[in-house]
């Protein structure tokens, strides 16, 4: 039954993505991307990753929908039709997809108890974290201490993305406000 739910959710995910590509009214696309995030968040819950699901629901379905609506308020509401052929991008996407699927062939089966991660590293972390890090929560210890540099890099990426968005949208929005004030003669 769980497998049935998982496959149905994956099918809905694909259908949502195809619909988002096909529609050219951007508001509907924003709504579809919100649904896409909700679906993947449910998938994460079904696949036993509730922390990732929390993030996906808060960031994907919550904040980014609002951010995209804010962008829509500043730009156009319909997609410009492109006259260029999409054969080469499609080819690149298909080849990348094949390479990614090929890369998963070496991975152990989903939920397998005999993976190296389950047999070596996890047991080691459970055993040694209380002495080495002295943080009761093992996930927190791994994120903030064992892979602290990795987390630092992620924070830098998010910070850079925030600065980029501020540079692009923040200035544009203020300019629009100023033009409106000039137009009203204030």
């Amino acid at each position: 039954m769980e497998a049935f739910i998982t496959y149905t959710l994956f099918a809905m995910l694909v259908a949502t993505a195809l619909a988002a590509v096909q529609l050219n009214r951007l508001f509907a696309v924003v709504m579809l991307s919100g649904v896409f995030s909700l679906l993947s968040a449910v998938l994460f819950v079904v696949l036993d990753a509730p922390d990732v699901a929390f993030t996906e629901a808060a960031v994907g379905a919550g904040i980014s929908t609002v951010l995209m609506l804010g962008t829509l308020a500043l730009t156009s509401r319909t997609e410009k039709s492109s006259s260029r052929s999409s054969a080469i991008p499609l080819l690149v996407v298909i080849v990348t997809g094949i390479v990614l699927v090929y890369g998963t062939l070496d991975m152990p089966n989903f939920g397998s108890a005999n993976t190296p991660a389950n047999t070596h590293i996890a047991a080691q972390f459970i055993e040694k974290t209380p002495h080495q890090i002295d943080v009761p929560n093992i996930v927190t210890a791994i994120l903030a201490s064992y892979r602290g540099y990795d987390t630092l890099g992620e924070v830098v990426v998010v910070f850079t993305a925030g600065i980029g968005v501020l540079l692009l949208i923040g200035r544009l929005g203020r300019r629009g406000e100023r033009q409106k004030q000039i137009g009203r003669g204030e």
Partner: peptide
């Protein structure tokens, strides 16, 4: 608990839209 959080996000998101 996660379901409760989703209900909250859903509500706030709809208000924003």
């Amino acid at each position: 608990d996660i379901a409760l959080l989703y209900a909250l996000i859903n509500f706030v998101g709809t208000i924003a839209v």
